[in-house]
């Protein structure tokens, strides 16, 4: 079947199998390999992206279900060369080591900050319930998210769209 999905602001049209999962559409069809696969059971969160502005596990979603929707991946988080505050926070606080879980962590954290701009440590830890990191012990991930919450200018917080970069659709790009 054919799907058309707005990915990081670009409308992407492609032929996929009915059974194609969104994560493989992103990784294999669009070559957006920042979204990772770490498990088979929707448990680890490495594949987290935003679907219409909400964090979802792209391994548990058909590309067909995302047809007509807007998807933001880690590749879409920096805007005009400016890092997203969470990206800065992870770097600033050493919130990553091997980097494999990091995109999913950032996408989950972006969803959290959108709902709860100044989360407590407990709120952050509960929000990360579905994201597994094997390197950091989460300590610096919690700090990275706190950093982003503290170092985000007020106008940016007011603009809820910023957190997901639901930007204007550009021209349609066909992908084989």
């Amino acid at each position: 079947m054919q799907v058309e999905i707005n990915v990081n602001g670009k409308a992407r049209k492609a032929e996929v199998e009915d059974r194609t999962l969104l994560v493989y559409f992103l990784r294999d069809t669009l070559q957006l390999t920042g979204t990772h696969v770490g498990c088979d059971t929707s448990s680890c969160g490495a594949c987290t992206v935003h679907l219409d502005g909400v964090a979802v596990k792209s391994c548990t979603l058909l590309a067909a279900q995302a047809d007509g929707c807007s998807v933001t991946t880690i590749e879409g988080m920096a805007k005009d060369g400016e890092m997203h505050p969470l990206q800065e926070g992870f770097r600033e606080c050493h919130g990553l080591q091997c980097g494999y879980c990091t995109p999913g962590m950032i996408m989950t954290a972006a969803d959290l900050l959108k709902r709860t701009p100044k989360p407590s440590e407990t709120e952050i830890r509960f929000a990360l319930e579905g994201n597994i990191c094997r390197c950091t012990g989460y300590h610096n991930i919690v700090k990275a998210i706190q950093w982003a919450a503290e170092n985000t200018a007020a106008p940016m917080l007011a603009d809820s769209h910023l957190w997901t970069n639901d930007v204007v659709v550009e021209k349609v790009v066909e992908t084989e």
Partner: peptide
């Protein structure tokens, strides 16, 4: 239920 991403879907 589940985690935030699971609850959203």
């Amino acid at each position: 239920i589940g985690d935030p991403a699971v609850r959203s879907r």
